[in-house]
């Protein structure tokens, strides 16, 4: 039973339609990858799911509840956590304040919020050392950890990650992907957008390939890695990295 069901999703900016009817599902306990080149519409898809872009047509349903026309902050409350492209931390605020804002919706439960923040510091020990440091002064990898930790404080049902590996060293990417796998194994649904197809297909269970605003191919990640079309377009040369 899928947690997230997207049917015929259409989104646009001004007169230009960017997504021409996308179908997509994500179930609990699976990592679903959304692949595609620059400008294919990956980020737009995620922004539409979390309510940052208005949906022009089609349906978005999370756990049986329609998200069409629901405001972004309500969608967060319904259990969708979106880690945006380029992390979008509150740079002049401390790591601690960033995490506290992640728990904005449970701000009335001080003890529970504190407990969950400690859980995050246990998951990312590097952040515990940097609690009072301004988020903008952290390294890229640490910033990505803050972005993910901040999204996990509410214990979402669906975690949406937009290019978490962007600009990070391979070793850090591996450790972040390791944490994503762990979350999946604990039953979280994960929707992962990446340009780095090779590495992503290795951790994903299923994948969709988006091209010019339409789903070109979808299937099991292992099958897609062998698909000649995917190989040609995304796994061919160094350009795929």
């Amino acid at each position: 039973m899928s947690l997230l069901v997207v049917e015929g999703l259409r989104v646009g900016y001004g007169k230009v339609e960017v997504l021409h009817g996308i179908d997509l599902t994500v179930a609990p306990g699976e990592i679903v990858a959304l692949l595609g080149s620059n400008g294919a519409g990956k980020t737009t898809t995620l922004r539409a799911l979390s309510g940052l872009e208005p949906v022009r047509g089609g349906k978005v349903v999370l756990g049986g509840e329609s998200l069409n026309g629901v405001k972004a902050h309500r969608i967060t409350a319904l259990g969708l956590a979106h880690v945006p492209e380029r992390r979008r931390l509150f740079s002049p605020l401390t790591v601690e304040e960033n995490l506290r804002l992640g728990g904005y919706l449970i701000r009335d439960q001080a003890a529970e919020l504190k407990r969950r923040m400690e859980t995050m510091y246990a998951l990312f020990p590097r952040l515990a050392e940097r609690r009072l440091q301004l988020a903008g002064t952290l390294s890229g990898g640490e910033q990505q950890m803050v972005a993910i930790a901040r999204a996990l404080v509410l214990q979402p049902r669906l975690l949406v990650l937009d290019e978490p590996s962007m600009g990070l060293a391979p070793l850090i990417v591996r450790s972040i992907f390791g944490i994503v796998k762990r979350l999946r194994d604990e039953g979280m649904a994960v929707l992962l957008v990446e340009q780095n197809a090779r590495q992503t297909l290795r951790i994903a269970d299923r994948a969709y390939v988006l091209e010019s605003g339409s789903i070109l191919i979808h299937g099991a990640a292992a099958d897609l890695a062998l698909d000649p079309r995917v190989q040609a377009a995304y796994l061919g040369g160094a350009a795929a990295a």
């Binding site: 979390s50 309510g51 940052l52 405001k71 972004a72 902050h73 967060t76 409350a77 956590a81 979106h82 945006p84 979008r88 931390l89 509150f90 740079s91 002049p92 605020l93 804002l101 992640g102 904005y104 919706l105 901040r150 999204a151 509410l154």
Partner: peptide, 11 residues
Amino acid sequence: VDRDAARLMGI
């Protein structure tokens, strides 16, 4: 700092 990121926090 960032209005969209604030929305994503549920603000």
